[in-house]
Write a protein that binds this DNA or RNA. Structure first.
Lengths: 205, 205
DNA sequence: TAGATTGTTAATCGATTAACAATC
DNA sequence: TAGATTGTTAATCGATTAACAATC
């Protein structure tokens, strides 16, 4: 299958392309050249064309790329033309903020369940989602076959909760904890602790 | 200067090394081999040694790396052996969560000012920080020479606010908005909209 | 000393870019 | 048609890895 040979760095750039194309769409633009995309994104036009051509020839010589068509193609490539159900574990401040974050639902991600171990918060509703006891987590996630989980628990319990998630079928974990998690091959792990990117940036300051 | 030649991918891995070393330190470990670090982090031992050797020979043949010494060296390389003052603009739910996030202060980042344009929230205190009118932003940031800003405003005003920040000396922006920002060369921009990493992950599911 | 593991070299692998024929 | 811009090739550039002498 062709898809398996796409470099990870290319895949990581596609959401940025999608983001920019959405912006152009809102501005009413019909087409865009690789050169313009490159200028906006701070890359070379050759890189843009090469990245896109992994998935097919979506452009037109002399004209560029049709914004809507390219956007839809990329959404299809990234499997964004469906709703993805997400579970969130750890309903602290960050967890609550993410549950209320409108950006998820407007892009096809829906947090459909949330778990915590604090009796104070279990049973409460946040952004329309009832917080369940984390003891229920495995049963619920298994039952509903949730593919993606957001991990916003304290560092100390991160690995344990991650193991439990994986045991009941979660395929991707967004790790917001400042922890180096061990996950089996085949499980996607995104480390998005806000501190990590800050620590990279300070090298250059 | 040697530092200028370090590949970005290497710099991006250093915080992960720091994270794991901190974990080992808490476990009371005195030394660690490149092989063990590699196993934990899912990389090769050669890569770890190569990355570290950009900054000097911190290891000892036959023994490995002294955890404390390596940790301190990396902290020094990443300029983490000081306090970094951070401004936050956009005190919505995500902004508030980040203001309350303990992970920043415990790693040497301190959100020292916050701004919003909503009269309802201006003047209130969140996590001990008084929210100021965004009209005051440029004056305050200039005056205190804040190098890092967290951008958590609505997408529509993101570019405008970013321009204002840069005009008054901000050198790095953590962009939490779903926007492709244009920034001048020399300004560090980290795109950490949570949706971006989700959209990358769905490609593989 | 014997065993272990580093730091570094050279080889490999992969990603980026310049250039241009194809073509809208 | 003339001008513009794609898709792709080949060259370049850069990052990763295997291997091993050095050495603790």
């Amino acid at each position: 299958m062709k898809r398996l040979t796409i470099p990870e760095v290319v895949v990581a750039r596609l959401p940025l392309y999608t983001q920019k194309l959405n912006q152009l769409l809102r501005e009413g633009r019909e087409s865009v050249s690789s050169q313009e995309m490159a200028d906006h994104l701070g890359i070379t036009s050759a890189q843009f064309r090469k990245d896109i051509s992994f998935f097919g020839g979506f452009g037109k010589q002399g004209t560029g790329y049709n914004v809507i068509k390219l956007l839809e193609s990329l959404r299809s490539v990234l499997n964004l033309d469906r709703i993805w159900e997400v579970a969130l574990v750890g309903v602290g401040r960050l967890g609550q903020a993410l549950m209320s974050y409108h950006g998820f639902s407007s892009t096809g991600f829906e947090i459909v369940m949330a778990f915590d171990n604090d009796p104070e918060i279990i049973g409460k509703s946040i952004a329309g989602i009832k917080v369940l006891d984390v003891k229920e987590m495995q049963k619920q996630i298994c039952h509903r076959e949730i593919p993606i989980a957001i991990l916003t628990v304290p560092a100390a319990s991160a690995q344990e909760i991650a193991d439990q998630m994986i045991a009941c079928g979660v395929k991707a974990i967004m790790n917001y904890t400042p922890t180096t998690l061990k996950v089996p091959k085949g499980i996607r792990l995104a480390n998005i602790d806000p501190v990590l990117s800050l620590q990279t940036i300070t090298f250059y300051l």
